[in-house]
Structures are given as structure tokens and as C-alpha cells.
């Protein structure tokens, strides 16, 4: 690929990391993301009803976005992402970990501009199967919808 990337640098870096590996190593990297997924902060851990379920995933996962408008408002506000998924669902946790590392801290505009085919760019289709990647698409779609709703609500 020589065309300029339409991904934020943080996500492009992850895409490049996966592309450089063989399938078994891609699984190991996905497992690393799974292990590094941050735990929910206490304010959400105690209020699971605030998180949105993602039924496209085979295993239960819940997510929540936050719009930090302390520095800038509207689509220049900073997005933070929170996920909750059990340890017996490492693939789903891995997908969440990729989105967390690649998108947390981006502006709302950058989050909304992430292309829907991101999961298919991760070179994971052969390692985990395309069907399983649909769970990640479900998470991305929900993140973007929440961010859109929160921008509107803050106006």
C-alpha cells in the first residue's frame, strides 16, 4: 500500500504491526491487546447499567464512550473509551484492546472518520476468521454512534 493512510497514526501503527507478522504471531499480538485492556474505572465498574452491550460479539462485551470537553468542544472534544469483557473471552477483549489503544484520546472528529472496514485491515481475517471480526465492527459502529449522540447532546 503506497497511498496515504486515512487512519489516525495510532491505528495505522497497529495495522502495520499486525501486517508485519505471521498468523500465529498475530494471535499472540491480539492476546497482548487482550491482556492490556484496562480495567473499568470504579465509577463505571460500580454502574454496569451505564455501559452498552455489543450483541455482534460472540462473547459478552460492554462499552462506553466519554466526551471530554474541558479543552475543546464539539467534534474537537477528546474521546475516551471504556470496555468490560470477561477473561474467558480473550478474542473480544483483544478487539476492544485494539480500539482502546488506537482510538482513546483522539478527537471526536477523528473517531468519527475511522473507516468502517478497519477490522478487515488488521490482517486478522485468516487468523481469527472474518465472521469473528464482525464483533469488532459492531464495537466500532457503537462507539461512533455514541460519540455522535454525545456531540449532539452537548450542543
Amino acid at each position: 500500500m503506497t497511498q496515504p493512510s486515512d487512519l489516525p497514526g495510532s491505528l495505522q501503527e497497529i495495522v502495520d504491526d499486525f501486517a508485519a507478522l505471521t498468523n500465529p504471531d498475530r494471535l499472540q499480538l491480539l492476546l497482548d491487546f487482550s491482556r492490556e485492556l484496562p480495567a473499568l474505572p470504579a465509577r463505571y465498574a460500580e454502574h454496569p447499567e451505564l455501559l452498552e452491550p455489543v450483541p455482534e460479539c460472540q462473547s459478552p462485551i460492554f462499552l462506553l464512550t466519554e466526551l471530554d470537553t474541558s479543552q475543546a468542544a464539539g467534534d474537537r472534544a477528546t474521546v475516551h473509551l471504556y470496555f468490560s469483557a470477561p477473561p474467558e473471552a480473550p478474542t473480544t477483549r483483544g478487539f476492544a484492546g485494539i480500539l482502546q489503544e488506537g482510538m482513546d484520546g483522539l478527537t471526536a472528529a477523528e473517531v468519527l472518520a475511522v473507516p468502517a472496514d478497519l477490522p478487515m485491515r488488521l490482517s486478522l481475517a485468516d487468523a481469527v476468521s472474518p465472521l469473528r471480526l464482525r464483533g469488532m465492527s459492531g464495537m466500532l459502529g457503537r462507539i461512533q454512534r455514541q460519540v455522535r449522540e454525545k456531540i449532539t447532546a452537548a450542543q
Binding site: 494471535l27 492476546l31 480473550p90 473480544t92 485468516d126
Partner: peptide
């Protein structure tokens, strides 16, 4: 398993993985 990574998190010693999709 349903989850393709579960084996990698730890499995019964000596066991091999067979994935239904792959």
C-alpha cells in the same frame, strides 16, 4: 473453543488446538 484465543491463554498440558472456523 468458540473463542479462537482461549487456547493461547492456557490449555491442558499437551493438548492441541482445533478451531471450528479455521
Amino acid at each position: 473453543d468458540e473463542d479462537v484465543l482461549l487456547y493461547e491463554t492456557g490449555h491442558i498440558p499437551g493438548s492441541v488446538k482445533v478451531d471450528w472456523h479455521l
